[in-house]
Measured scan of single mutants.
Amino acid sequence: MAEIKEKICDYLFNVSDSSALNLAKNIGLTKARDINAVLIDMERQGDVYRQGTTPPIWHLTDK
């Protein structure tokens, strides 16, 4: 899980924002549900936040 978090942070640092599906595909996974639990956990920790569009767009925080 730590490896996936690191990949998410690296990708969002370079791209600035992404949907869960696009993010999953760009870090080597196939479906948004493969990454949603990790994104929600990271959101609780304050590492990422989502804009409430459908589907949500994920961003890194300034943390």
Results as ranks from 00 to 15, higher is better:
residue 5 K to Q: 08
residue 42 M to I: 00
residue 6 E to G: 09
residue 57 I to A: 08
residue 48 V to F: 00
residue 6 E to L: 03
residue 46 G to H: 00
residue 41 D to P: 06
residue 30 T to C: 13
residue 40 I to E: 15
residue 56 P to L: 02
residue 27 I to S: 05
residue 12 L to C: 00
residue 49 Y to N: 07
residue 40 I to G: 09
residue 23 L to P: 08
residue 25 K to R: 12
residue 32 A to P: 10
residue 12 L to D: 02
residue 54 T to W: 04
residue 60 L to V: 04
residue 11 Y to N: 06
residue 35 I to C: 07
residue 45 Q to K: 04
residue 21 L to A: 15
residue 51 Q to M: 11
residue 56 P to V: 11
residue 42 M to P: 04
residue 5 K to P: 05
residue 44 R to Y: 03
residue 38 V to P: 09
residue 57 I to W: 05
residue 63 K to G: 05
residue 27 I to R: 03
residue 13 F to K: 15
residue 45 Q to R: 07
residue 52 G to I: 01
residue 3 E to F: 03
residue 12 L to K: 00
residue 41 D to Q: 09
residue 63 K to E: 09
residue 41 D to K: 08
residue 15 V to W: 10
residue 54 T to I: 06
residue 47 D to Y: 12
residue 53 T to I: 01
residue 24 A to D: 01
residue 21 L to Q: 14
residue 29 L to R: 07
residue 43 E to W: 01
residue 62 D to E: 13
residue 41 D to W: 00
residue 45 Q to I: 04
residue 36 N to Y: 09
residue 39 L to E: 11
residue 4 I to N: 08
residue 31 K to V: 02
residue 41 D to L: 00
residue 13 F to T: 15
residue 6 E to V: 03
residue 53 T to R: 15
residue 55 P to D: 13
residue 50 R to C: 12
residue 49 Y to P: 04
residue 7 K to V: 02
residue 56 P to T: 12
residue 17 D to A: 15
residue 39 L to W: 00
residue 44 R to I: 09
residue 4 I to V: 08
residue 8 I to Q: 11
residue 62 D to S: 12
residue 34 D to K: 04
residue 45 Q to Y: 02
residue 3 E to V: 05
residue 54 T to S: 14
residue 31 K to W: 02
residue 14 N to T: 14
residue 47 D to T: 15
residue 62 D to H: 07
residue 56 P to Y: 02
residue 5 K to D: 07
residue 21 L to N: 13
residue 4 I to W: 02
residue 60 L to T: 03
residue 30 T to R: 07
residue 25 K to H: 12
residue 53 T to V: 00
residue 1 M to Y: 07
residue 41 D to G: 07
residue 61 T to V: 10
residue 28 G to F: 01
residue 6 E to N: 06
residue 54 T to E: 14
residue 55 P to R: 02
residue 13 F to W: 12
residue 59 H to K: 15
residue 51 Q to C: 13
residue 47 D to L: 15
residue 28 G to I: 00
residue 20 A to D: 02
residue 27 I to H: 03
residue 43 E to M: 01
residue 20 A to P: 02
residue 23 L to D: 08
residue 27 I to A: 05
residue 44 R to M: 09
residue 45 Q to V: 12
residue 11 Y to E: 12
residue 50 R to A: 09
residue 22 N to I: 07
residue 50 R to T: 06
residue 52 G to W: 04
residue 26 N to D: 04
residue 32 A to M: 14
residue 9 C to E: 13
residue 52 G to N: 12
residue 12 L to T: 00
residue 24 A to W: 02
residue 24 A to F: 03
residue 16 S to A: 12
residue 20 A to M: 01
residue 59 H to G: 15
residue 43 E to A: 02
residue 35 I to W: 00
residue 10 D to W: 08
residue 58 W to Y: 11
residue 9 C to Y: 14
residue 40 I to H: 09
residue 2 A to R: 13
residue 62 D to M: 06
residue 33 R to T: 15
residue 32 A to Q: 12
residue 61 T to G: 06
residue 8 I to R: 07
residue 52 G to S: 06
residue 48 V to A: 08
residue 14 N to S: 13
residue 36 N to M: 10
residue 35 I to V: 12
residue 7 K to N: 04
residue 4 I to A: 07
residue 26 N to F: 07
residue 27 I to M: 07
residue 18 S to R: 02
residue 50 R to Y: 00
residue 55 P to W: 02
residue 10 D to M: 05
residue 42 M to D: 03
residue 15 V to G: 07
residue 55 P to Y: 04
residue 48 V to Q: 01
residue 25 K to Q: 12
residue 8 I to D: 15
residue 10 D to A: 12
residue 56 P to F: 00
residue 63 K to C: 09
residue 61 T to N: 11
residue 39 L to T: 05
residue 42 M to W: 01
residue 5 K to I: 04
residue 34 D to A: 09
residue 31 K to L: 04
residue 30 T to K: 11
residue 8 I to H: 01
residue 9 C to T: 14
residue 41 D to S: 04
residue 32 A to K: 07
residue 4 I to P: 03
residue 11 Y to P: 10
residue 47 D to G: 00
residue 18 S to F: 01
residue 16 S to V: 09
residue 43 E to Y: 02
residue 41 D to T: 05
residue 12 L to Q: 04
residue 1 M to S: 12
residue 62 D to R: 10
residue 39 L to G: 10
residue 7 K to F: 04
residue 10 D to H: 13
residue 39 L to Q: 09
residue 24 A to L: 04
residue 45 Q to A: 14
residue 62 D to Q: 13
residue 37 A to H: 13
residue 5 K to R: 11
residue 12 L to H: 05
residue 46 G to F: 00
residue 49 Y to C: 14
residue 36 N to G: 07
residue 8 I to K: 03
residue 60 L to R: 05
residue 36 N to R: 06
residue 40 I to L: 14
residue 11 Y to H: 12
residue 16 S to L: 04
residue 54 T to V: 10
residue 31 K to F: 02
residue 47 D to Q: 14
residue 30 T to Y: 14
residue 39 L to R: 07
residue 52 G to D: 11
residue 13 F to V: 12
residue 29 L to T: 10
residue 58 W to D: 05
residue 25 K to T: 08
residue 25 K to P: 00
residue 37 A to D: 11
residue 16 S to T: 06
residue 48 V to R: 02
residue 34 D to G: 03
residue 59 H to A: 15
residue 13 F to C: 14
residue 4 I to K: 10
residue 2 A to Q: 13
residue 50 R to H: 08
residue 45 Q to D: 14
residue 38 V to H: 08
residue 55 P to N: 13
residue 36 N to Q: 10
residue 1 M to F: 14
residue 42 M to V: 01
residue 59 H to M: 09
residue 49 Y to H: 12
residue 59 H to R: 15
residue 45 Q to C: 12
residue 20 A to K: 03
residue 47 D to M: 14
